[in-house]
Design a protein around this nucleic acid. Structure first.
Length: 134
DNA sequence: GCCAACGTTGGC
DNA sequence: GCCAACGTTGGC
């Protein structure tokens, strides 16, 4: 089991939109590192849902429903999508500020590579973030 | 609105 | 293959 974090700008696609639809095809990723992370996702992996730009906080937990396949929004075979389903909303959101201030989260990929839209989360980091969400 | 950090493109 | 120029993301 692996853990991940995906970013979305809430005014484009928010957690609430995600819950309303019940499922999301995570398309439009055009960055190799993010793509490679998506290819490494396995069905059942857990994925934090983070609001970038506005909010700047982890708001919910999703699960990988379908592993990667060709991105239907492009002919270009380099790009892929995964399908995610909402699992649960966090009791308390966890802000970027909180994570940056936590000594235990200094190597979090979200913090180290702030522009990457799909990042891995270590098990230890995952547990810490979940504990901050209660 | 600014700008740092990256990623990409294209000329050489 | 290098690197300058440019574009984008996202925190502040």
């Amino acid at each position: 089991m692996n853990y991940w974090l995906v970013k979305s700008e809430p005014f484009k696609y928010s957690w609430d939109d995600f819950v309303k639809e019940g499922k999301s095809v995570w398309d439009g990723v055009r960055n190799y590192q993010a793509r490679n992370n998506m290819k490494a996702m396995k069905k059942g992996d857990w994925v934090f849902f983070y609001h970038s730009n506005e909010g700047m906080e982890v708001v919910g937990l999703a699960e990988v429903l379908t592993e990667f396949y060709q991105d239907p929004t492009t002919e270009d075979p380099r790009w892929v999508v995964v399908e995610l389903i909402p699992k649960q909303k966090l009791e308390k959101t966890v802000s970027l500020k909180t994570m940056k201030a936590d000594d235990r989260l200094q190597s979090l990929a979200l913090i180290k590579q702030s522009r990457l839209s799909v990042t891995p989360v270590l098990k230890a980091e995952f547990d810490i973030i979940l504990s901050l969400a209660q």
